[in-house]
Design a protein around this nucleic acid. Structure first.
Lengths: 176, 176
DNA sequence: AAGTCAATGTTATATTATAACATTACTACA
DNA sequence: TGTAGTAATGTTATAATATAACATTGACTT
């Protein structure tokens, strides 16, 4: 109860919505709960079946904005009493990806919870090689545009965009 | 000799330099030879050792603008009498990638010869899901730009950009 | 209760990649 | 000329990632 209040206060303190929020200190409890609520809402709207396994995997990926490999997920599932053979993880991940709740980061062969579920999109990822966190930018935010020639010569159906570098937070820390 | 002449004539027939040349009919003999010449020149300039294995792997990747997996390369090496255990391919590929002669397409876990060797760059790839050919656009050509916010909040060191879709040539063919 | 179907469980194996060490073959230079 | 050093290649084994194929479960339907 009290915790909630603090969360709420902290929320007000935060700067304006920020594309790199995931990298910075933020009220992650709130962030987590809000994402989870969204997640559940989408299951209802789309009439999908929210099973314990699907919920668990999504929660694991929501944990701290760090991507998890399939086998890391399996280890965590094992600890929670789920079966933990590879197809279990890959099937749930495939399902969550298909419905836009999770993305795969090709650079890392790992998976993250989607930050903008619902918008079917070609997200751009920023991957900090230092703290290993990932932030997702949606198309409009990224300002990403290809020039006319590219668009006219090639019909883009899917775009994989992964930016590897150093996040604002780790830059601060780097200055020692 | 005569072949050369035809090539030369065909070259003149081609339209202006085109970002999606790789997808279209073009004088591939000339394309191949020119890329190979460049490749060799870079080895001289950078004082690298051009071994038969390195040359062979690059030639294989130059063949037809289609990416090859490491194990496909190994099969082809075997046919040419080279040793063909995985480290052979991966080591040569690592070397060629490190020096900018080859890129890895993450989407396909496969490798292509670089179209703009020498420019150290973050290339953008267009991958046709129909003919499976790949074309590389360099930074300037792509017109790709991130907005200020992205750039100020995250220090980009490497960008993986892979566009999956249908090339101009396959679009034409698609209309049946 | 029997049939259906989606979800999960299980076994086996495919695909991609690397670690660790051995051999070769070229270079330098004593 | 021979030998020490080193880069490249060769070899063996195994790690890491992913999928195929089939079995079981459990909820819902009729």
């Amino acid at each position: 109860m009290f915790k909630r209040k603090i969360s709420s206060i902290m929320k007000k303190k935060q700067t304006s919505p920020n594309i790199s929020k995931n990298f910075m200190d933020h009220d992650h409890e709130l962030c987590f709960e809000s994402a989870l609520k969204d997640f559940k809402q989408h299951f209802i709207e789309k009439e999908l079946k929210l099973t314990p396994l699907r919920l668990k995997v999504f929660q694991l990926l929501l944990k701290d904005h760090r991507p998890l490999g399939a086998y890391q997920i399996l280890d965590l599932l094992r600890k929670d009493g789920f079966s933990s053979t590879p197809p279990i993880a890959y099937r749930v991940l495939d399902f969550l990806i298909e419905h836009g709740f999770v993305h795969k980061i090709k650079k890392l062969n790992a998976f993250v919870a989607c930050s903008h579920p619902g918008n079917s999109h070609s997200p751009t990822f920023m991957i900090c090689r230092k703290c290993e966190k990932v932030a997702e930018i949606n198309e409009k935010e990224s300002g990403l545009k290809f020039n006319k020639e590219t668009s006219s010569e090639f019909k883009i159906e899917e775009a994989i965009i992964e930016l590897i570098g150093i996040c604002k937070n780790c830059t601060k820390i780097e200055v020692i």
